[in-house]
Design a binder for these strands. Structure first.
Lengths: 194, 194
DNA sequence: TCTAAAATGCCACTGAGTGCCAGTTTTGGC
DNA sequence: GCCAAAACTGGCACTCAGTGGCATTTTAGA
């Protein structure tokens, strides 16, 4: 890795680490960007060249996870039933989340306690929903009806995923996330009343 | 109406009106709270006694609509199939939205152009989802499985409703919103693939 | 009419986020 | 190794959202 790139990665990492320490110790709003900068040995002005805003610090894996999701979506394109693809992706992420349970729960407690962070999380959900809709559309073919069906399904999918995650968080990550995910997708596939 | 109450309503109305003018003319971020206050003839400090923040100005009907939704949810509690209740509620709101098409579209264009407003809209969706989940839970009975089913269904419901609204907005409010809503609920009831 | 409560205005303050520019560090060609 | 261009950084001054405190005005009700 070229020197310049390595330094940038180090600064980024230092900022995230400093932020996490302070966020978890004193809370998000109580932590000031100036303090984080001081800890990381960087100027305020520089901070805003690494992160759009304070909230972005709480989702350091945002783009990385999303790109992985895109790749999985792309790769899962063989079955005619798009839910099959989702089931596989669901397994993958369920394992990752279960493996990093403590870290994920801590992050989520933070997010849930700060409306501004919940808002950012929703932005992420929107990205995922849009990506799913695009994939489904490719399966469903042309036409306004197919387009609408793809979007409805993506909306419902992100809805049940969110609900499932919330449930899992609430139960302190004890339930089997992979199983919860499969049940959620059952509802998506066959409806919640039939 | 007592004088004090009437004055408060007038101030509130003046603030919303001034804000709407400026928001639509110059945009949300370009409009300063000071300007809105000046237009409405009120001090900055007073503004914050009427609205939590600048964003709240963009959703003046938030609590009123939500309370109406709660009442409808409560009233639609006879059929064993909770989707039937949703269908009725959907009709009601579809008619209201179609009747105020222009105003609603203008408001939505504003919301869509400002991330901070999209975030507030999501807060509203969360309120609605929670309310639906509570209603469904009453239908589905006790037990962790019923609880989970209620939440999944509420998540999916808000997901398809959001997707439907986005579609309708995108088509400039031309499609028959009531029909779109029924189709969305069909998917919710019977699944998107069976 | 008089008083307690409610509503308002004003001031000073913190903290997020931005524009600008000058100084430093890294890179790539020689 | 040297040098110029490009990238990165720091510091400063600024705008604006949002808050706390307190003095002043307005309303409600006896």
């Amino acid at each position: 890795m070229p020197l310049r790139e390595a330094k940038k990665a180090a600064v980024r990492q230092a900022l995230v680490a400093a932020a996490n320490r302070r966020f978890h110790r004193h809370g998000f709003e109580q932590t000031t960007i100036d303090e984080i900068c001081a800890d990381a040995g960087v100027s305020r002005r520089t901070f805003f060249r690494y992160f759009e805003n304070k909230e972005a610090l709480a989702f350091p894996h945002r783009t990385e996870r999303f790109e992985r999701f895109l790749a999985l979506l792309d790769g899962a394109g063989h079955s005619p039933n798009p839910v099959d693809g989702l089931r596989a992706i669901c397994q993958t992420f369920a394992h990752e989340y279960s493996a990093n349970r403590e870290a994920i729960l801590a992050q989520q407690r933070l997010v849930d306690s700060v409306p501004a962070l919940a808002a950012r999380e929703h932005e992420i959900d929107c990205d995922w929903e849009t990506a799913m809709a695009a994939t489904f559309r490719r399966r469903f073919g042309r036409g306004a009806a197919a387009e609408r069906r793809a979007r409805l399904m993506a909306g419902a999918a992100i809805g049940v995923i969110r609900a499932t995650m919330r449930y899992w968080y609430e139960k302190d990550g004890k339930p089997d996330l992979a199983r919860l995910g499969q049940e959620a997708l059952d509802g998506l596939e066959h409806g919640f009343l039939s």
